[in-house]
Design a protein around this nucleic acid. Structure first.
Length: 981
RNA sequence: GCCCGGGUGGUGGAAUGGUAGACACAGAGGACUUAAAAUCCUUUGCCCUCACAGGCGUGCGAGUUCGACUCUCGCCCCGGGCACCA
């Protein structure tokens, strides 16, 4: 064997032997625990793998190899996320068909993965575009459909004018399509959705138990966006601004309407009973109705406030509607609902806002004068023309118009003007808000711009108010300041550490008390209820594109939807020459008559659904297929899935924090509820690798040049950089990608330094989750380390005893031998822990340190038999501990040591705690916490011994002169701290 | 604005509240060599000093503690995510 690391002489040899021995074929042996390790399903790009991909695959490989050596059945699969936009776009550019192209790219990926020695079980591999696979994607679609979790509706969707398709919310960044960079437009077409919102609460709650990076969990929580609040009804009033000013304007007394209260109530009661309402028909509803009625009645008589009158009609109406009564439309007041998380600020509502798209706007429009109608029309027209991107691009500059109508604030019976403005989103909550400008930034900005009232109704606690009054601070001063300022320029006070003011009987309550009381009060009156809202929207899966999984639905003549029967699955994606997107919102499949025209279940002519599923559908269950990839009768065998699931360790980039990881969790939960898999969560543990950045040349922009998103220069080629003047050239660290021209491939690294050197470097260069600025010099230094291993093994070989294990217990060991065994077992312990903890950089450094210790031994091996045995153990241990990181080298060394088989099949070295224990330890002496001296002591020395030894140190005695020792702290095995003054 | 990460030598980075800088890279000096490469040895946080001994040091400022890179509070800076979500 060589005395240095010479990869070209053995790496491909071992790769061939592994393949011939079918070494990485998944074992399912009884008696072994299971370990499922997986990397994110990659899209095989034409650029091939970069060293950045390897930073994902190599560490997972280390973990899986170590787990196998440690006695696990290991499932370590790899497949290809082949369907989807990137593949289709690439194929269009190349004027080829995506299918053969993707096959070629996948083959190249596989070749590269083999080149760096990743231990995938290729017998389980597949691509999401294989009919054997997407048949079952369609099957799951049908399952979702049958459960009411897949549906089609007209929707204003995100339309990408470049890729000519609809995109999911998650695929849009700052109003632009993530992939094409085009400004996204709104378009109204029928679309397929998965009802992920039905699982919002579970998706949120189950995050707590996952061993995932906190950052990713936080992002998912944020995306799901749960907020708890109150939803309540506001009645519309058509009064003229003149009347409003007269009765409710600044300074005017609140109008009371108590006179009509009782009559109206009686009349309503009579009407409901006359229309055939029977309390016993539906006890729950009836009870509730009567409860509402009674409570409202009482409250109305007692409180002497107009609000109660309205509430009674609300309560009655709501109850009656719920009871299924035909309530006379004449009496139904025009009203809308708002959602708020700050019902404690209700008394501070000075206006309310509807989104321009709110359905009630038409009816409000009908009741106002022509001038206001015109204003409403032109504002809505404006809003319609604006894309989401433009709305956002306009930033915080608020726009809106007054509708001319008013709504009743249920708290004080005071009407407030109704505005429409696009800062209220149609898609969230009820699309309408109560506006409290004193305590909400957006309402505040809006009120300032349009001169609306600002009434503070909560005051900050004292801690917050300090900072207002400078000089002679007093609480009253500060509060006065705050109240003054909130009306002019100060940003509003929005904290929940507050006390209610200007709120009638609620004055003095905290946020919690006020929220609870007002919530109860509204529920009692039936005008509102406590409610939970989520930001999460349903998952849009339709794509008007060719290269995706067809949706297995037939539209009948009558406009009905039918599922394609399971026996007829898969609905094959037709093999055609032209598949470019049409650009008018229809799928290319709609222009292929042989595909489009079919017969429905009743034998009549029907048309196939022509949208395909977005790629994220395909990647939402592949980890289940890996458990049973060749099953032609079922998507998977339940027992097999239950054996392997969950994925014990899932590794990939943080860019999939919300999309893939949320969708896959959703599908798993649905499949769980169908009893198809026992786990509720697919990925028990998640790890995100850091990115690999390449040094990339840019130059300063010249006049008239526009910069790319997030860039501060114009990208130039490496060749071009040579001819650019130094002062114009800018070097930046940018994520490796084909388009940046900064990709370093594993191929070139393997060719120049070797696969194991590349692997070791990737592990060692930085913590697993940290970004790395790529420098190939590091690979050379990893190769140097491997050479030192080869040299050490080569030099030790003559002294090695094969059966050291049988002899070492009977051989008296000298200090040198004991030290070697100590190093060996400490290293076994630390390496094993670090691999489990994803501490791959320290894993390698322990091995380096271990090797340094072993090569430092000066003692004569030929005379010290115990040492020779300890070295025999050490050499073997070193090779085995190195094996997951540098498997080719390890097998080469293993063979050179006269061992048979592969290191992969050898047992992981066993840690023996008693051998790792130090006999002599270094003890530091501190005086008042400062290091002053140190000494050696036996490990078993008592605290009293250590204290005595420390106090006897001449240096310490000198330092303590003239001081009284107050206290001595002893940390066994570590230090003695003497407190003296 | 909000939510996550993170700030330690020239560089990448190590450190269960217990001797900061492990392990590397780069640098300096040396050995081997006709020479170079490769390899090996020594050295390397900063200041002061011939040296010994000191002093200062983990973004900044406080605090808790016998003792803080580590815990608490308040800031600053860098990276990422979300962003008019009521």
């Amino acid at each position: 064997m060589a005395d240095r690391y010479d990869p070209s002489s053995f790496e491909s040899k071992w790769q061939k032997r592994w393949k011939d021995a079918d070494l990485f074929k998944t074992r399912e042996e009884p008696n072994r625990p299971k370990f499922y390790g997986a990397d994110f399903f990659p899209y095989p790009s034409g650029a091939g793998l970069s060293v950045g991909h390897c930073r994902n695959y190599v560490p997972t490989d280390v973990l899986c190899r170590a787990k196998y050596m440690q006695g696990f059945n290991v499932l370590h699969p790899m497949g290809f996320d082949a369907f989807g936009l990137p593949a289709e776009n690439e194929a269009i550019k190349q004027k080829s068909h995506p299918a053969p192209m993707i096959r070629k790219y996948a083959d190249n990926y596989r070749r590269q993965m083999d080149l760096v020695g990743i231990s995938y079980d290729w017998s389980r591999s597949f691509a999401s575009s294989d009919p054997d696979y997407y048949k079952w994607t369609q099957w799951i679609f049908e399952l979702l459909y049958k459960k009411g979790l897949a549906y089609r509706k007209m929707a204003a969707v995100n339309w990408d004018p470049v890729d000519k398709t609809v995109l999911a919310d998650e695929e849009i960044i700052g109003g632009r399509a993530e992939r094409s960079g085009a400004l996204v437009e709104k378009k109204l077409i029928p679309q397929w959705f998965f009802k992920i919102t039905a699982y919002a609460e579970q998706l949120l709650k189950d995050l707590d138990d996952l061993d995932w990076p906190e950052g990713i969990k936080a992002q998912q929580r944020n995306w799901i966006g749960k907020s708890e609040g109150v939803q309540f009804r506001m009645e519309v009033r058509f009064i003229t601004p003149e009347d409003y000013d007269r009765h409710w304007g600044r300074g005017a007394e609140v109008l009371k309407e108590e006179s009509r209260m009782s009559d109206e109530l009686e009349a309503l009661k009579a009407e409901v009973l006359a229309s055939g309402f029977k309390p016993e028909a539906d006890p729950t509803v009836a009870e509730k109705a009567l409860h509402h009625l009674g409570k409202a009645e009482d409250a109305a008589f007692k409180a002497d406030r107009p609000i109660e009158t309205e509430s009674v009609s609300h309560a009655f109406e709501a109850a009656a509607v719920k009871a299924g009564l035909n309530f006379n439309d004449r009496d139904r007041k025009l009203s809308f609902e708002v959602f708020t998380t700050r019902v404690d600020t209700l008394f501070g509502m000075t206006f309310c806002v509807l989104s321009p798209e709110h359905e009630i706007v038409d009816r409000i429009r009908a009741g106002v004068d022509p001038d206001h109608q015109k204003a409403i029309d032109s504002y809505r027209e404006l809003a319609k023309q604006k894309t989401d991107a433009e709305r956002t691009a306009d930033g915080k500059d608020k726009t809106g118009v007054f509708t001319g109508a008013y709504a009743m604030n249920p708290a004080n019976g005071k009407p407030v003007p109704i505005w429409i403005a696009d800062y209220v989103l149609a898609g969230y909550g009820t699309g309408a808000i109560m506006a409290v400008p004193a305590h909400d930034d957006r309402d505040f900005a809006f009120a300032l711009k349009f001169g609306l009232d600002i009434i503070p109704v909560i005051k900050p606690d004292e801690a917050y108010l300090i900072g207002f009054g400078q000089g002679d601070f007093s609480y009253e001063h500060a509060l006065a300041d705050y109240l003054r300022n909130v009306k002019s320029y100060q940003p509003p006070f929005v904290s929940k550490d507050s006390t209610m003011i200007n709120s009638g009987e609620y004055n003095g309550m905290t946020y919690e008390e006020g929220t609870a009381s007002l919530g109860r009060w509204m529920e009692g009156l039936g005008i509102g209820e406590r409610k939970v809202q989520y930001k999460l929207r349903d998952w849009l899966i339709s794509r008007q594109r060719y290269w995706g999984c067809p949706i297995p639905v037939i539209h009948t003549k009558d406009g009905e939807e039918q599922l394609v029967p399971e026996s007829a699955l898969p609905v094959d994606l037709p093999d055609v020459e032209h598949y470019e997107p049409a650009g008018d919102g229809t799928s290319p499949l709609a222009h292929i008559p042989e595909f489009l025209n079919t017969t429905d279940l009743d034998g009549r002519l029907g048309k196939r659904e022509t949208d395909t599923m977005g790629g994220f559908a395909c990647s939402s269950w592949y980890f289940l297929r890996f458990c049973d990839p060749h099953n032609s009768a079922k998507a998977w065998d339940i027992e097999k899935a239950n054996y392997w699931m969950p994925v014990d360790c899932y590794v990939g980039g943080a860019e999939h924090a919300v999309m893939h990881l949320l969708y896959a969790r959703f599908w798993t939960k649905v499949l769980h509820s169908e009893g198809l898999v026992k786990v509720k969560e697919p990925f028990a543990r998640l790890q995100n690798q850091g990115q690999v950045l390449g040094l990339t040349p840019y130059r300063k922009p010249r006049k008239g040049e526009t910069l790319g998103v997030g860039e501060d220069g114009i990208l130039v080629s490496f060749e071009g950089a040579k001819s650019i003047p130094k002062e114009e050239l800018m070097w930046r660290w940018v994520r490796m990608s084909k388009s940046k021209g900064n990709v370093v491939t594993p191929d070139e690294m393997v060719a120049t330094h070797g696969a194991d050197a590349l692997r070791v470097h990737l592990l060692f260069v930085a913590p697993f989750n940290a970004d790395v600025e790529w420098d190939s010099a590091g690979v050379a230094s990893a190769a140097k380390f491997l050479s030192r291993v080869f040299r050490f093994v080569e030099e030790s070989k003559p002294r090695i005893t094969q059966n050291w294990r049988d002899l070492i217990e009977f051989e008296p060991l000298g200090d040198a031998a004991k030290a070697v065994r100590r190093a060996t077992h400490k290293t076994i312990r630390d390496v094993t822990n670090d691999i489990d903890d994803f501490g791959f950089n320290t894993y390698i450094s322990w091995l380096m340190k271990y090797l340094n210790a072993l090569t430092d031994i000066k003692a004569d091996l030929s005379t010290d038999r115990g040492l020779a045995l300890a070295i025999s153990e050490a050499v073997e241990t070193l090779v085995l501990l190195l094996a997951p990181a540098a498997p080719h080298s390890a097998d080469e060394l293993w063979e050179a040591l006269g061992k048979t088989g592969f290191t992969y099949e050898a047992n992981w070295p066993k840690f023996q705690a008693e051998l790792a224990e130090d006999e002599v330890v270094n003890i530091a002496i501190q005086v008042n916490g400062k290091l002053r001296d140190e000494f050696q002591a036996p490990a078993q020395a008592t605290n009293a011994d250590l204290e005595a030894l420390a106090l006897a140190s001449p240096k310490i005695l000198g330092l303590l002169e003239g001081l009284a020792v107050r206290k001595v702290i002893v940390v066994p095995g570590r230090l003695v701290n003497i407190v003296a003054n």
